[in-house]
């Protein structure tokens, strides 16, 4: 059985805003095994990005603050590391790719320069070595004439190519974990598929573990081994990918899957058929945060927030209701 390389326990992150304290992440726990791909899904604002940024110490402080939790990585707690220590983890052992490739590269620095930075920083390459390696990396992610394109600036690359650059940069120091935060959301559908294929290929070649954040349960099905579903800053369901698709337990997951566009339907017309919007939590809820939108809601859901419970070896869910029977789970 492969080792656990990242073990997050009870992570809580809040933001101080003029409207009040926002509880963005509320006691999130998950594990990541070596070489595994973990999907993280959920609607906008449910705390996916904040969870990952917290783990890497990238939450803007203020307004953000991590109030509780551990994140063990190679036996050390990332949340307890000094700024200098975690800096040597970022980009070297855990790296991150962001959603919008149009804004995630620096517009005034050349692609080459931006690729060289982590190489010189973490591996101690000279500028010349880094330059050669940068060209190889660009080639690796499928950019033609890689050598000549190092001196280009981001605006001379298309969106898809920029995301390839981001991936090349993230993988440049052979990290153990790649966190991809909705890396395809901002791209055209055809380009999305190319990026997913690229990441699959690189995973097979390099063997890193991946945390793939997305809105799109369809993409995750073909990529991940295990999936976490988040809602209101909580993990509400977690299961092996096959089990989640064949036997979803949480009403929210069922809703998400129900709104998955069919392969034969070209349009991604309405992504979610669940009524209403996810909440912004100014207080830790005393009820199930999904209750206001839930079809199966019962008395108990309004009074107690269900904990995440193991229902089978590969499956955890946080819900009072057994959606098969519509009655209380016991």
């Amino acid at each position: 059985m492969p080792d656990i390389i990242l073990d997050v326990q009870g992570l809580e992150t809040v933001f101080k805003t003029p409207e009040g304290l926002v509880h963005a992440v509320n006691g999130v726990s998950f594990e990541l095994k070596e070489g595994e791909t973990l999907g993280v899904v959920g609607e906008s604002g449910c705390g996916k990005s904040v969870t990952m940024l917290s783990v890497l110490g990238l939450i803007p402080t203020p307004p953000g603050r991590i109030v509780a939790g551990k994140a063990r990585f190679n036996g050390r707690d990332l949340l307890k590391m000094s700024g200098e220590e975690i800096r040597h983890v970022r980009g070297a052992q855990i790296s991150m790719v962001f959603q919008d490739p149009m804004t995630s590269l620096n517009p005034v620095l050349t692609i080459g320069r931006q690729l060289q930075e982590p190489l010189m920083m973490h591996i101690g390459m000279t500028r010349k070595q880094a330059q050669e390696r940068a060209a190889e990396l660009l080639e690796m992610v499928g950019i033609p004439n890689a050598k000549d394109r190092l001196s280009d600036y981001p605006h001379q690359y298309s969106g898809g190519m920029r995301q390839r650059v981001m991936i090349a940069m993230a993988l440049s120091c052979s990290p153990q974990i790649l966190i991809a935060d909705e890396p395809t959301t901002a791209l055209d559908v055809t380009i999305q598929a190319q990026i997913v294929d690229l990441v699959k290929r690189l995973r097979d070649e390099l063997g890193m573990a991946i945390i793939w954040i997305t809105h799109d349960l369809g993409v995750v099905a073909g990529l991940a081994q295990r999936v976490i579903v988040m809602y209101g800053g909580y993990i509400i369901e977690e299961a092996a990918v096959g089990e989640l698709y064949t036997d979803p337990q949480h009403p929210y997951t069922i809703g998400l899957l129900g709104s998955l566009p069919r392969v034969d339907e070209r349009k991604q017309s309405k992504l979610y058929s669940i009524e209403g919007l996810p909440p912004v939590l100014y207080q830790k809820p005393q009820s199930c945060p999904f209750a206001p939108r839930c079809k199966w809601v019962m008395e108990r859901c309004w009074n107690e927030n269900p904990p995440l419970e193991t229902i089978s070896p590969d499956h955890r869910v946080a819900c009072w209701v057994d959606t098969k029977t519509g009655r209380s789970r016991s």
Partner: peptide, 27 residues
């Protein structure tokens, strides 16, 4: 400093000094 590429620079593990003076300030 709120731009995404500044977060990218930090996520790469650059020291804060470089993030500010090499990545943010020129913009």
């Amino acid at each position: 400093l709120r731009m995404e590429y500044v977060t990218t620079a930090r996520a790469k593990g650059l020291p804060e000094r470089d993030v500010i003076f090499k990545h943010a300030r020129p913009n």
